Amino acid sequence: MNKMAPSTPARLSAYTDAVFAVIITIMALELRPPTSPTWAGLLGLWPTVVSYVVSYAFVAIIWMNHHYLMTFITTPSLRLIWLNFGHLFCVSFLPFATAWLAQTELAQVPVVFYAVLFVVTDGMYNLFEAEILKHSTAFSRSEYLSARRRSIFAFALFAAAAGLALIDNWLGFGFICLALALHLRPDATPFRRRSRGKDSPS
């Protein structure tokens, strides 16, 4: 008997992992060695290094949060799948934005574009996270609200970074880094699920 296999978190995660791997590969391929065999030539690549490190950290943070979120679902809904595709669509612009940032030495317009890309990407992540958490039984109401407040605060910092970049590119870029730091610890982790399992009556 042939039946169509249901969509699973593993399939969604595998596809997402593949996209992230391609994005990192494209960014790495944009790295070029200096034409001068001197330390000065190497130091002249600082815009490339800075933009690559921040973008790499962004991808790592996105992947980590996505990894933990996927532990809270059993069968992805159609809405969740499309939200994931929307999120990946935004992330796919990261190599372009990173290269532009490096080539222009973090000039104002590229930094504004970079910050806006982070705003849109984080906005899609917030929708993706909210869709998962509101259907999960692994959180209490207070834990759900705490995770959402943290995500929304980080989103607000990205939005502030975009606004500040219009005034000062370095200040805007600094706020981008600050917002990334808030996501170093995932907004939602599976620890609550394990603790509930231990405390539940047999």
Results as ranks from 00 to 15, higher is better:
53 V>Y: 01
57 A>R: 05
60 A>Y: 00
60 A>R: 00
62 I>H: 05
64 M>S: 01
64 M>W: 00
65 N>F: 02
67 H>D: 08
68 Y>S: 03
71 T>C: 03
72 F>V: 02
73 I>H: 02
75 T>H: 04
75 T>M: 00
77 S>W: 01
77 S>K: 02
79 R>I: 09
80 L>E: 01
80 L>K: 01
80 L>A: 01
81 I>K: 03
83 L>M: 03
84 N>D: 06
85 F>C: 02
87 H>G: 13
88 L>H: 03
91 V>T: 10
91 V>E: 08
93 F>W: 07
94 L>M: 13
96 F>G: 01
97 A>H: 14
98 T>A: 13
100 W>D: 14
102 A>K: 10
102 A>V: 10
103 Q>G: 15
104 T>P: 11
107 A>V: 08
109 V>E: 14
109 V>R: 14
110 P>C: 14
111 V>P: 14
112 V>H: 10
112 V>P: 08
113 F>C: 11
114 Y>S: 15
115 A>F: 06
116 V>K: 03
116 V>F: 09
118 F>T: 05
119 V>S: 13
119 V>G: 14
119 V>M: 13
120 V>G: 11
122 D>A: 15
127 L>E: 10
128 F>P: 13
129 E>Q: 14
129 E>Y: 03
130 A>F: 09
130 A>R: 15
130 A>L: 15
131 E>Q: 11
133 L>F: 12
137 T>N: 10
139 F>W: 12
139 F>K: 07
140 S>F: 06
140 S>C: 09
141 R>H: 15
141 R>V: 15
142 S>W: 05
143 E>P: 07
144 Y>R: 06
145 L>W: 09
145 L>K: 11
145 L>Q: 11
146 S>M: 04
148 R>I: 12
148 R>Q: 15
150 R>G: 13
151 S>Y: 04
152 I>L: 14
152 I>Y: 07
155 F>G: 14
156 A>H: 03
157 L>G: 14
157 L>H: 09
160 A>F: 07
160 A>D: 08
161 A>T: 04
162 A>C: 09
163 G>E: 02
168 D>K: 10
